[in-house]
């Protein structure tokens, strides 16, 4: 029972599709990595799946009983956010906002869940701190906790390690892999990092000049044979 199905989906703006029509589904426990050069349409695809923009053609179908507000999302940070005066708890709790139309105050259960998510990511000690005073890696962890407040089933991540130092990058990959393998969360992740993608993912989708969609074993073989051409541009 797939969580999400894309049927002949052509994401784009207006009448211009950024990539040819795609058809694939995401099952529970999948880890789909979306690769491709800049401008190949990765972010556009993700935004189309989330319903943030309309596709040029095709549709995104959600599984039975799976609602749009049950998808977690970790977008790229804006400059405004990096400098925002908010406590970490306020940021994480804002992940619960999509659940109810009218909810002036957070319930105890929601506050406990926020704490739980922070603990899952070893970030409970940050809960009282000011968001803008955290390091890049810490901020990403907080945003991940926020995304987890919105979902238990499917998580979409847009370049979650961009701008992080190698240590933080590795820590983030470990956490995402843990969420997928131990906690059973389905992941769709946009990335530029092919080695890590080949290591952690179950399926690869590559957009751009050499499109590819398949299992990670097939991907390894395909990419290996491409290596003599100079490999992928990062």
């Amino acid at each position: 029972m797939p969580l999400l199905e894309c049927i002949d989906l052509a994401p784009g703006y207006g009448a211009n599709a950024v990539c040819p029509p795609l058809s694939f589904s995401v099952e529970p426990g999948d880890y789909l990595c979306v690769l491709g050069e800049n401008g190949s349409g990765k972010s556009t695809l993700m935004r189309t799946i989330l319903g943030l923009q309309k596709p040029v053609a095709g549709e995104v179908r959600l599984g039975d009983g799976f609602l749009p507000n049950q998808i977690g999302y970790l977008p790229q940070q804006t400059a405004i956010q990096k400098d925002f005066p908010a406590s970490v708890m306020e940021v994480v709790l804002s992940g619960c906002q999509g659940k109810h139309f009218f909810q002036p105050f957070y319930t105890k259960a929601q506050k406990e869940m926020a704490q739980k998510q922070l603990q899952r990511l070893d970030a409970l000690g940050l809960s009282r701190k000011c968001y803008r005073e955290l390091s890049g890696g810490q901020q990403q962890r907080v945003l991940l906790a926020r995304a987890l407040c919105a979902t238990e089933k499917l998580l979409l991540l847009d370049e979650p390690v961009s701008g992080l130092d190698p240590q933080a990058t590795q820590a983030m990959y470990d956490r995402i892999r843990d969420l997928n393998r131990q906690q059973g969360l389905a992941i769709i992740m946009i990335s530029h990092d092919i080695p890590s993608a080949l290591r952690d993912a179950t399926r690869i989708l590559r957009l751009g000049n050499h499109p590819f969609l398949g299992d990670v074993e097939e991907a390894r073989k395909t990419f290996l044979t491409e290596a003599p051409k100079g490999g992928e541009e990062a």
Partner: peptide, 24 residues
């Protein structure tokens, strides 16, 4: 402001995320 305080925060802090997770 009091009734919609948390929604306003969500929308001002991260409009994309808010929209993606179902906030109007």
């Amino acid at each position: 402001f009091v009734l919609f305080y948390h929604k306003i925060f969500a929308v001002v802090f991260d409009e994309e995320f808010a929209r993606a997770t179902g906030v109007r």
